[in-house]
Amino acid sequence: MIQVTDITKKFGNVVAVDSVTLNVKEGEVVALLGANGAGKSTLIKCILGLLDYKGKIEIQNRNIKENLKLSKSLIGYVPQDPLFYDMKTVDILHFFGSIRRVDEKRIKSLLSLVGLEDHKHKLSSELSGGMRQRLSFAVGLLSDPPVLILDEPTSNLDANAKGDFLNLVKERKNQGKTVLFSSHRLDEVYFLADRVLFMKSGRVILDEKPQNLANSLGMRAKINLIIPEGSISKAISILTKEGFGSVSRNGSGLYVEVEEGKRIVPFEKLMQARIPITDFTIQESSMETVIKHIEENGY
């Protein structure tokens, strides 16, 4: 569906995207991960035809440079920070709807889908960040395009708005849309993506399934186990013997680092040894951890 072949984009002497080749199949959801400045947004802008580039980009087997307008009609784009004209919500949908030649019925159904019916007469500047992002999503869906491109769409949203937004995207995924999205957040990747492309210094350095990402990167979750004072030393000893590399005392409990996918194992081992666990917390691998890992170990 989206075929990017040997794309290079330079700003002066700075190489923002460096010989990137990737393929997003029909119905596939692909996440672009990477630190700030890795080239994710630049690559997306190349695919949208906003930037000139060296190489070839095809949407549905059509070179976008030769079929720019048609290519853009196949894409619904949701930017990181949606910037609208200072019009009413419904007028914004009408304006972009007219460009995409959609009818009133479609606009009404989208307002309902994104939950903005009660806010349709508000100016875009009066909408909250979450509402603006939902409006942006509605604009992206106007012509029911087969491809959705989302550029860090949840970066400015609070937890509730983020959850609502991700569910909207997930529904589109289930309907068979092809989605390419950039993100800073691993939880979004696990929730949505079929495949993850990790970008660093303008290059795609990792192409992996999300479930394999943790293992590929050697990522570990940090578990804080609260156990009775008298059992802490014994617990440390058992877990160390079981091969958990990083086990340490932490106040009224202990810390243990566990490979992703094996979080249950320390619980099982301690329960087998009849050591009671009174409470626990899990510190997820963060994007920062992943970036740090790649920066330190390369890939």
């Binding site: 853009k72 894409i75 784009y77 930017p79 995409r100």
Partner: peptide
């Protein structure tokens, strides 16, 4: 400057 131009250009308009 506002960023509305690139957004507009991401739609099928020349």
């Amino acid at each position: 400057e506002n960023g509305t131009l690139p957004y507009l250009l991401s739609h099928p308009i020349n």
